[in-house]
Structure formats: structure tokens, C-alpha cells
Amino acid sequence: MKREITLLTILLAGIYATDASASGAKALFYDEGDVSVQTSTKTKKKPAQKKKTKETAQNYLGISYWVDLIEPNGKVSRTTASRTFRSGDRIKLNLQANRNGYLYVVGVGSSGASRVLFPNAEGVANGIKAKITYAVPFDSSLKFDNLPGEETLLVMLSEKPMPDLAPGTKSLPEQETRQMLADAHVPGAKDLVIEEEVGEAAPLPASYAVAPVQALGKKKVLTLQIKLKHE
């Protein structure tokens, strides 16, 4: 899908929760709550104290994400990637990690061609801090064209830099793209928990994707596949 975009990062205010009732995957991004999550392999017991909660949180790598929909009048409304967008809609993707790391965003077109959307150029830092929100892009937006369909974004959070994903690469090898898609964790994948909060009970809707660090292999990379539908 053709988009006119300029990708930069902005450091925004971190969102810290004061609601001690936060639990599950969501609790990784909050100061209080039970960070135990149900995976396909095992369930960790609920930590007895806040100190234990923080120790348990280090056993998981997670990404929180949501979409800002920018209306023609400039009004911004927060929603999730599960929304069906319309041709011409402009959006920003907001990402937050529970731990420090390196962030990469790759766009995969319907033809299978892919390109590195972030970092988009040499010199653009993609090292991120825990519980800080990063907007992609900063000084522009992603715009859906007039061809209805489904676009795929691969979001990767790595403990170390990934030199193979050169900033601004416009065409990744087909084999590399297939491998990234195969590595992508989607709902139902082993050891991955995805939770979504929407509706009236969630004034700040967001999705949370969490996996145990030990389940991510030697490279320790959490790969998330986000599909954006538009009509």
C-alpha cells in the first residue's frame, strides 16, 4: 500500500497506572498489580508482594500498543488496531514496552514486499526506554489509500540491536520477510498472551502482547504482527 510518510520518534509522557487492580499482561506496564499471565504452557502464581511482582515482571517481554485516529478537523481519538478503518483515514501507531530495548517496525504489503518503516533513516535512534510512549510517525501520519484491504505491520522489540534491519531499507529479501512472518506471534501462538481493552470500561483502549523471555529463543526478540483493515 502506498503511503506518504516520514518516520521519526518522539518521546512522550509515560503512562503510569495508579489502579492497583491491573492484572495479567496489562500489569507489566503498571506499577501495581498481578503480573502473572496465563500462557499455553504454564501459569505463574500470584506474587504476594509488590517487590515480588516487580521481580516476576522481568521474566516477561511485552508491548502495549494503540492507534490514534486523526480526523479531518484535527481531532484525535484513541482506538485499537482491531478497528476497521476507512480509505483516507490518517493514523499514528503508539508503542510502549515494559523493558528497555530496541524497536523496529516493518511494513508488509499485500504483494509480500516489505520495507523497514522504523528506524527510517541513518542516525535515527531506535533504542527505547521502558514505559515511555513512542509515536510512529511523529511529524506526519500513516494514510490509508483508496484500495480497501488489509495491511500488515511487524513490530519487533529486541534486547539487542538487529543489524540486518538497516534503517530505511525499502525492499527486504523475500526469504527474510517470510521468516519474520513465521516468527511473528499472533493470537493463539505458543506462550504469547494478547489482551485488548475496548469499550466503555476502557477510556484508554489498548492492546497488550506479552511473552515469557525464556520462550523467545536465543535472540530474545518479541515479534508482533499487527493487521490493519480498511474499507
Score class of each variant (00 low, 15 high):
residue 56 T to I: 11
residue 49 Q to F: 09
residue 117 L to H: 03
residue 117 L to D: 04
residue 201 A to C: 02
residue 96 Q to R: 09
residue 186 V to A: 12
residue 150 E to C: 06
residue 65 Y to S: 10
residue 172 L to I: 02
residue 111 S to R: 05
residue 84 T to P: 02
residue 118 F to W: 04
residue 224 L to I: 13
residue 141 S to E: 06
residue 57 A to Y: 01
residue 98 N to T: 13
residue 180 M to H: 09
residue 162 M to C: 07
residue 40 S to I: 03
residue 16 Y to K: 07
residue 221 V to L: 10
residue 38 Q to Y: 10
residue 205 P to L: 15
residue 21 S to P: 01
residue 17 A to K: 03
residue 18 T to M: 03
residue 174 E to R: 11
residue 105 V to S: 03
residue 80 T to M: 10
residue 83 R to A: 05
residue 60 Y to H: 11
residue 73 N to E: 11
residue 112 G to S: 04
residue 58 Q to N: 06
residue 178 R to W: 12
residue 125 A to T: 01
residue 19 D to W: 12
residue 200 E to R: 14
residue 50 K to N: 08
residue 180 M to S: 08
residue 14 G to Y: 08
residue 112 G to D: 03
residue 101 G to K: 12
residue 43 T to Y: 13
residue 4 E to F: 14
residue 224 L to D: 01
residue 190 K to C: 00
residue 105 V to A: 07
residue 139 D to P: 01
residue 50 K to R: 14
residue 93 L to S: 02
residue 69 L to T: 10
residue 135 A to L: 11
residue 45 K to L: 14
residue 226 I to E: 03
residue 175 Q to D: 08
residue 113 A to R: 07
residue 72 P to T: 08
residue 131 K to M: 02
residue 3 R to E: 14
residue 127 G to P: 04
residue 143 K to R: 05
residue 105 V to H: 01
residue 12 L to D: 15
residue 159 E to R: 14
residue 119 P to F: 01
residue 154 L to F: 09
residue 213 V to N: 00
residue 207 S to P: 04
residue 209 A to V: 04
residue 150 E to I: 05
residue 6 T to G: 03
